[in-house]
């Protein structure tokens, strides 16, 4: 059955936020379903085949991270988490567990829509198995097949690690990657706690790819969490 509207499930216990999300997302043409608890949310996720899940981390019945893990056991559906400001580590745990993006309360509607758009695109790219192609954003072009990088049409030479770092970012373009996730993919599991490696290589990469390294446009920093490649 072809879906005409993208389906979004909101798992959130606070009624006013649910109401605000439901109303505003419905006007944007999404089919919205709501769940008040984690358990109910998981049931909904199984039944509705959603394109996206918006999950609040502070649920009354169970830990949001547990919900993510449960869903990730059988689905790659993009998950955007909502978190209160004070729970930095909680947020990282949720991303490590497989969430795609996060929004800090309070957030504006514009921000929410931007995140949803990115997540949906990312989700569809995964579905299309489209990581074999040439990726491009702003003035950057990356050929993942031939391991080539161009900036403004000119080829840029990267060291093997720099390239590996960039390719990991490209593979997950648009998604927030925690330090831990990137370290694991680029350097291997035993380097998961050496975040300063990542920061140094990231800054080298920015020197080569960004016009103004202090005001990056492509390789964005998610403060205290990790990095994201803009799409």
């Amino acid at each position: 059955m072809a879906k005409s509207y993208p389906v979004i499930i909101i798992i959130e216990d606070d009624p006013p936020i649910r109401r605000f999300l439901r109303t505003s997302l419905a006007t944007q043409g999404f089919s919205v379903f709501e769940a008040e608890t984690g358990k109910q949310g998981m049931v909904e996720a199984g039944v509705r085949k959603p394109d996206l899940i918006i999950l609040d981390l502070g649920l009354p019945d169970m830990d949001g991270v547990a919900v993510i893990k449960a869903i990730r056991a059988w689905s790659n559906v993009p998950i955007i988490i909502l978190s209160a400001r004070s729970s930095e580590q909680h947020k990282i745990d949720a991303l490590d567990a497989g969430a795609d993006d996060y929004l800090m309360k309070p957030f504006g509607f514009g921000e929410l829509m931007a995140r949803i758009r990115v997540a949906l695109r990312h989700g569809s790219r995964l579905a299309d198995n489209g990581d074999a192609e040439i990726f491009s954003v702003e003035n950057l072009k990356v050929d993942l097949l031939n391991r080539l990088v161009w900036l403004d049409g000119e080829e840029v030479h990267l060291t093997p690690i720099q390239y590996r770092l960039l390719s990991v970012m490209v593979k997950h373009a648009g998604k927030v990657l925690t330090h831990r996730q990137i370290l694991k993919e680029v350097w291997g599991p035993s380097y998961q706690d050496n975040a300063h490696y990542l920061r140094i290589y990231m800054s080298q990469l920015r020197q080569k790819l960004e016009a103004e390294p202090t005001q990056p446009k492509i390789l964005l920093t998610e403060s205290g969490v990790g990095y994201r490649l803009k799409i």
């Binding site: 975040a195 300063h196 920061r199 140094i200 990231m202 800054s203 920015r206 390294p213 202090t214 005001q215 990056p216 964005l220 920093t221 403060s223 205290g224």
Partner: peptide, 18 residues
């Protein structure tokens, strides 16, 4: 404090973004 090693430009870049 969650102290770690950071390049100064990254901190400033993040701030300017925010």
């Amino acid at each position: 404090l969650n102290k770690q090693w950071h390049p100064v430009e990254e901190i400033i870049g993040t701030v300017m973004n925010l």
